[in-house]
Computed example of a mutant assay.
Amino acid sequence: MLELIEVTKVYVQGRRTVPAVQGVSLTVRPGEFVTIMGPSGSGKSTLMHLMGALDTPTRGRALFHGQDLQAMSDRQRSLLRRERIGFVFQAFNLLPTLTAAENVALPLLLAGRNRRQALQRAGECLEQVGLSHRADHFPDELSGGEMQRVAVARAIVADPEAVLCDEPTGNLDSQTSREILTLLSRLPEPARRAVVMVTHDPTAAAYGTRLVRLRDGRIESDHPVPKSSVPCDSV
């Protein structure tokens, strides 16, 4: 589904060039929950941005279902992100003037869907994340955990084939983090949907089915997560 082939990403900062990712090859298959760990500056978020068509490689190829993302136009990449890839970020990125339901429905409304149908689908996704009773509340009326649940609902409203999460529990307390991670662990679907999560937290990484460790822009290790290490509340 998601594939990086000998990918390098170099950023230019004034007269300096900074290699964020160096020669990385990685494949994510449908049904997997891949967690990516590494110290600050190891290239975790850059890797996720390349897989999610938020950025393009300096060298190498980033593919989505065999399609080269760099060969697409900006509009094609934008449509791909809107229709086939969902995103969950540390800073919930909810619009303060929209209700929870409207925030969730926004990707569908931007795609031209009928408002009634979009809100109906948003209601279904809010119910899936246990937040249907807060559909008419604005972000400033929600707790941090509730806002992240809204963000998860928004990420899945278009029924994407991949959900990419960048430090989704970074702003949450430990109990709320467990609830969000349990929710994310239920999103992968065999033969259809994969989840990729960037995290610095080993406890969060244990919720995945596969752990990729980065160091200095390169893959240091890549192995399955033993079932015995998965927290008991996620199964």
Results as ranks from 00 to 15, higher is better:
138 F>L: 15
103 N>V: 10
235 V>S: 15
145 G>M: 12
104 V>C: 10
198 V>E: 03
103 N>P: 11
184 L>N: 04
175 Q>W: 02
204 A>N: 08
186 R>E: 13
60 G>F: 07
102 E>I: 09
53 A>P: 03
225 V>E: 01
135 A>M: 13
200 H>D: 11
200 H>W: 08
170 G>L: 06
62 A>E: 02
188 P>T: 03
201 D>C: 08
151 A>R: 03
62 A>V: 07
157 V>Y: 01
79 L>H: 11
118 A>T: 03
95 L>Q: 15
61 R>K: 11
99 T>N: 09
188 P>F: 02
195 V>R: 00
187 L>C: 05
195 V>W: 00
196 V>Q: 05
210 R>K: 03
227 K>Y: 07
162 A>H: 03
12 V>K: 14
205 A>Y: 01
62 A>D: 00
39 P>N: 00
27 T>Y: 04
177 S>R: 03
207 Y>C: 08
85 I>W: 01
13 Q>C: 14
131 L>I: 10
71 A>N: 10
77 R>M: 06
150 V>F: 04
225 V>K: 00
220 E>Q: 15
105 A>V: 04
28 V>G: 02
185 S>V: 09
117 Q>P: 04
169 T>R: 02
10 V>A: 07
125 C>V: 11
67 Q>T: 15
96 P>M: 12
124 E>P: 08
230 V>P: 00
62 A>Q: 03
187 L>Y: 02
207 Y>H: 06
18 V>C: 10
190 P>F: 03
102 E>S: 07
38 G>V: 08
169 T>I: 05
153 A>V: 06
75 R>L: 15
12 V>D: 13
